[in-house]
């Protein structure tokens, strides 16, 4: 394989890795938006808290000398549990009292929550970069392709694919998933049919936060360092992914994440890496301006 082509594939694969993490976070945005039409600004912060929880748990287990894969599994599970609890609490404190308020009120409340959480972690932990241990081991059987795609990337791609498939099945085939879809379509009607909308909304926040937690631990292990501010940028990009795919649509979020990751990486690799974030924001602005319904979304019908 010539080096030109190899460079291209490297970019694409690391783009897919980044993209699957964006997709994991984007699912939280899109599910929440689908149900209560709120951009959950604090979602990026949940992802950051997930990374921190993972780091702390990994640090604790590292003292006892656990095997690497065990540390990864326990760190991910702990991050999921705590982030789910955070998501549940945030919804209850900052959004539930505003269920019938004008639309801008919960949005401002969400921005406040995001600022609060960021500073809370920064004050309780540190505002510096923390090194994150590499939790994903190098697999020997992947050595032959290691020059294009590392085993960390493979694990991230496979794991997020599994998680997303599971989520898809949950939404499609379980009673809870059916209730969630019904609530997203028409909350009042769902309540009339005996669905407890409040608990469905709580479940949505819990699932979204759990997905963000998985994304947080995995990407932190790949990047090698975290700080209290990673949530903002990752949250914005994940939101871009959700919008790109059509906000409210679950396959859209997955697809949007992958497209965004690849676009960003290719643009950074071939044009200029200084402007990688600018490209992501540019995609966001352009999509929202020219096709706000995204790729998979339906254009909203405006009722008077």
């Amino acid at each position: 394989m010539n080096s030109e082509l190899q460079y291209f594939f490297e970019l694409v694969f690391s783009g897919i890795t980044k993209g699957s993490i964006y997709a994991l976070i984007a699912l939280g945005y899109t599910m929440v938006y689908g149900i209560i039409e709120l951009i959950n600004f604090a979602h990026g912060e949940i992802y950051m808290i997930g990374a921190f929880t993972g780091l702390i748990v990994a640090g604790l287990l590292g003292i006892f000398g656990f095997p690497l894969l065990g540390v990864l599994a326990i760190a991910v599970i702990c991050a999921i549990i705590w982030c789910a609890a955070y998501g549940y609490t945030i919804e209850k404190v900052a959004y539930r009292p505003l269920r019938n308020a004008p639309r801008l009120s919960p949005l401002i409340s969400a921005i406040g929550m995001s600022i609060f959480l960021q500073n809370y972690v920064q004050l309780a932990q540190t505002s510096d970069f923390l090194p994150f241990p590499q939790l994903i081991p190098d697999f020997e059987f992947l050595d032959s392709i290691a020059y294009i795609v590392s085993s960390t990337d493979v694990v991230i791609i496979v794991l997020s694919a599994v998680v997303m498939t599971a989520l898809h099945c949950f939404i499609k085939y379980t009673n809870m998933g059916k209730a969630m879809r019904a609530t997203a379509q028409n909350r009042k009607m769902a309540m009339l049919l005996g669905i407890d909308a409040d608990s469905i909304i709580s479940v949505t926040f819990v699932i979204g936060s759990a997905l963000a937690a998985i994304g947080g631990v995995l990407i932190a292990s790949r990047m090698g360092s975290i700080d209290a501010y990673i949530g903002f940028l990752a949250g914005m990009k994940a939101f871009t992914a959700a919008v790109l795919g059509g906000i409210g649509s679950i396959p859209g979020a997955m697809f949007g994440g992958l497209v965004l990751g690849c676009c960003e990486n290719l643009a950074a690799g071939y044009i200029s890496s200084d402007y990688a974030d600018v490209f992501a924001f540019l995609i966001l602005v352009l999509i929202l301006t020219f096709r706000p319904s995204g790729i998979f979304g339906r254009a909203p019908v405006q009722k008077v």
Binding site: V93, A94, L98, A101, S105, P106, I108, S109, I111, G112, M113, S114, I115, F116, L117, Q118, N119, Y120, L123
Partner: peptide, 11 residues
Amino acid sequence: LIFGAIMVAMM
């Protein structure tokens, strides 16, 4: 931190 909390509480 306090601003964030105030924004939520005000809303």
